[in-house]
Design a protein around this nucleic acid. Sequence first.
DNA 1: TCATAAGTTGACACCTCGGTCAGGTTTTGA
DNA 2: TCAAAACCTGACCGAGGTGTCAACTTATGA
Lengths: 224, 224
Amino acid sequence: MAMAEVAEPAERKPRGRREPNEERIRARNQRLILKAAIEVFSKKGFDGTPISEIAEKSGLPKANVYYYFESKEAIYRAVIAHLIQGWDDALTHIRPEADPRTALEGYVRAKLEYTRKNASESRLFASEIIRGAEYLTRADRQHMKDVTDKAVAIVDGWVAAGQLKQVNARHLFIMLWSATQFYGDFEPLAADALLVKRLTSRHYEDAARTIVDTVLGGILAASA
Amino acid sequence: MAMAEVAEPAERKPRGRREPNEERIRARNQRLILKAAIEVFSKKGFDGTPISEIAEKSGLPKANVYYYFESKEAIYRAVIAHLIQGWDDALTHIRPEADPRTALEGYVRAKLEYTRKNASESRLFASEIIRGAEYLTRADRQHMKDVTDKAVAIVDGWVAAGQLKQVNARHLFIMLWSATQFYGDFEPLAADALLVKRLTSRHYEDAARTIVDTVLGGILAASA
DNA sequence: TCATAAGTTGACACCTCGGTCAGGTTTTGA
DNA sequence: TCAAAACCTGACCGAGGTGTCAACTTATGA
């Protein structure tokens, strides 16, 4: 709603250069706040999160949090915007000149890795989408679309070249995405299904193998 | 937390029988409240939902809602418990004597159908899991486990009989589940990926075909 | 050295929300 | 017909949450 999400200082002209490791107060505190916010938001959701808890977790008094961010919503938006970045890294595995099996397997594994290592972020993102994605900016969504389009084009190319059987690339990526997301976002359910208390790296390994085997087995053009 | 979730009336002995279509006041109002609750909870989450809105949507004053339910949490629990029921219907397609292709295809289509027709419930469930599944009772989770176990055993049977290639049945079901869930729970994302504003039945049809083709193509034992 | 900008903070205003309650009306069943 | 149970509800309360503010301290740069 608000135009200026972050309260800007009166912009003293940045005349002198700075030592790299002398982190500016503003940068440090914003980082602290955002980091705490990711954790708390992902655990309790937007409405369930009191600013006081973000403040506590970041070691700052509440009023100081409001010195750096205009509102709770501004913090949330900043966090969401930050999530989008790391999002498409896995897709870099999908390169036209790569062979489909290696590329797709690389994607699946990278995606699972990301989901596993960044479970909080992943859940927060999922929860934002489930709630209707109202805090994702048009630009964020466009970016995700662009990245998807590019990957889809490459898969279509493989299909055209006879390297893959006919397949709807968009639905294919949805499958891969949802399957990989699942292990992080719905961990309790996944753990139940696998008869364990918590998922370990072994389960992620099994997941990768099953996904790759079944999906690739289904679309890889007669290589066997 | 509370033992008695729902405020019970002083249990007048049910001595006379009733006309079937003369719905009792209590039953009707509880139904109204639960229905409204599903909608609102799924849109705003537990913390984001004010009881006043459930009241409004169900046409009852807030105090009346509290006449039927002890607390907000009680309403939420009741809703969640209700969700579990419809959950495993799709799995009835997985029967030992069925042939794998028909069975799995039936499952995928039924699951997509459910997700599509009951998007609110589906999202609410997903959001509950993402938040850590703290309101799912042990019994609910056990039930889901049991149902899963049964389906897994059947798939394992097919594998043993040589009807399917070697596959980790538990991960397989996770794949199918997550893929089918995705279209309902993450609709905005799915729509973006498919370059449309909203998903239609055609997209669900494409989804079913893609899932079935790729997954079954990957695990069906040399039938082609 | 010193004026000014940036950063810090406890206290507080204000509002929303979960939940209660007293006292009413309607249903029920004998 | 009538008493008791079930049902209904406006008004209210207290806890907890967002966001503000005025006064203070620290950093900056000429």
